[in-house]
Design a protein around this nucleic acid. Structure first.
Lengths: 257, 257
DNA sequence: CGCATCCTTGAGGGCCATCAAAATGCGTGG
DNA sequence: CCACGCATTTTGATGGCCCTCAAGGATGCG
């Protein structure tokens, strides 16, 4: 599944090989990549559905996702709202460094492995490595860009299109880290998860999934999306990947250095 | 309207008096505040409804809003989606510094005045003033936190509650910069603007505004909201201000230094 | 094989979209 | 001061998306 260059990258940088892959990563020198890898103080495994950071909780470390999926959630007494999805290479709570406390929670979807970076270490980055500091800032701005797209998605699309959009986004993000496969996008999402991302009831999410199947755009079974026509799915969701700031032809971030 | 301390602040820092006011501002030394003020290279006035930055456009400056309201918008061929609102003290396109190109546009709602900071200047901040760099980072993370709340708002609230939530947010943000008045929140928003923020049709936005009036929570006329019961309005919208990271009792950001 | 979780289907009602049209308010020029 | 033109706001009617309540079916795990 991994092409040779990425495989060797995984060996050289076991914890941070996917950090900003497909984005700024290629603008970083080998020395920079090594430095980023060296920031990791240790790793942690978390079982599925466990919470890494609770809303409001004070922390003095941040975490980069190494394997598995995570959600950012805002929970109320009776319902959970998912405001973002993370996959390997993403810092899931880097903003905790500057904000000190998070306005939301970060939870594991399936079994995950994360790399830990102490905030004291990040202090040093700010003092000594402005280029890396800026890359970290960039990473949080990327999250913000995704947030904005979700806002627009919720303002304009109906439930089946929202689902299609979310899967298109994940596929593109996986492509950027060379982890996508051609015909299947495997996720650990339940239909309840999908509903909570789209802001609809699980029953309606089910009907929306059915509609995508009836339209013969894709088949979603137990979280995994199967399709042989990504183009049709992307068109259906009106998906434009430029907000992900990838290196592709539409890239918004050319000229960074 | 301005209490003496803020008034004097406006004199000492005519362009940046509201920057992070009510948030990190009080953790910055007088020297830091002076430094921030010195970053401003000049000011610019823009008439209502004019675009400051177009989506995809390359820029080498960022802007802080000094007076007036601005929107962040994503426009398609047939419709406009508003993904954020800015008021004086906000950097409206600070993320352009690290991202180079924006995924969305920034437009003036009424006549606005902005302060310009060259990206070359911000380079210097990253190199020499990590504390200020971190404050700038914080400012962009605050935007991201607001984005997340909007996502949750769109996932859970119906149109009248969305409108109430947006006005509650603006009132709190104005309070943080000591620019709120007690019984009226004056904005230049049309009902079309409100509709584009809430992701509903202007016709439905009108009915939603009517409903808020019928419930005797507030009166919204030509963008201005009048109420003598903010508490009832906040409860109706299930508004919790902690995501704004203000200095109040619920503050999530205590301990920053 | 039993149980828990997840998925599926049906029915009735509320929120919101669109089409169409009228009324209101505001700035401008006569 | 009034008349006009324009943007904005308001109202009515019909239909689609999505809600909740309720119940049944499938899947996977110990």
């Amino acid at each position: 599944m991994l092409t040779p260059p990425e495989a060797s990258s995984e060996i050289a940088f076991p914890q941070t090989a996917n950090f900003l892959a497909g984005r700024l990563r290629k603008h970083l020198e080998h020395d920079d990549l090594q430095y980023v890898e060296s920031l990791i103080d240790g790793t942690l495994s978390l079982p599925a559905r466990e919470t890494l950071v609770e809303r409001g909780q004070r922390t003095d470390v941040s975490s980069i996702l190494i394997s598995g999926f995570m959600f950012r959630t805002i929970e109320t007494s009776d319902r959970r709202y998912i405001v973002g999805v993370h996959l390997p290479g993403d810092f899931v709570d880097l903003h905790g460094f500057a904000l000190k406390r998070l306005d939301h929670s970060v939870v594991a979807v399936d079994d995950v492995k994360i790399g830990i970076v102490r905030h004291a270490t990040l202090e040093g980055v700010m003092q000594e490595r402005p280029k890396i500091a800026r890359a970290l800032w960039f990473a949080t701005l990327l999250d913000a860009s995704i947030h904005r797209k979700w806002i627009q998605m919720l303002e304009r699309l109906d439930a089946p299109r929202r689902i299609a959009h979310i899967y298109c986004e994940l596929q593109t993000r996986l492509e950027l880290t060379n982890r996508a496969s051609e015909r299947a996008l495997r996720t650990p999402f339940t239909q309840q998860d999908i509903a909570d991302m789209c802001g609809v009831s699980p029953i309606h999410a089910n009907r929306a999934v059915s509609k995508i199947r009836e339209l013969e755009l894709a088949e979603i079974r137990r979280g995994t999306l199967y399709t042989d026509n990504w183009d049709a799915l992307r068109e259906y969701a009106d998906f434009d990947p430029s907000y992900l700031y990838g290196d592709g032809p539409l890239n918004l971030n050319e000229g960074w250095d």
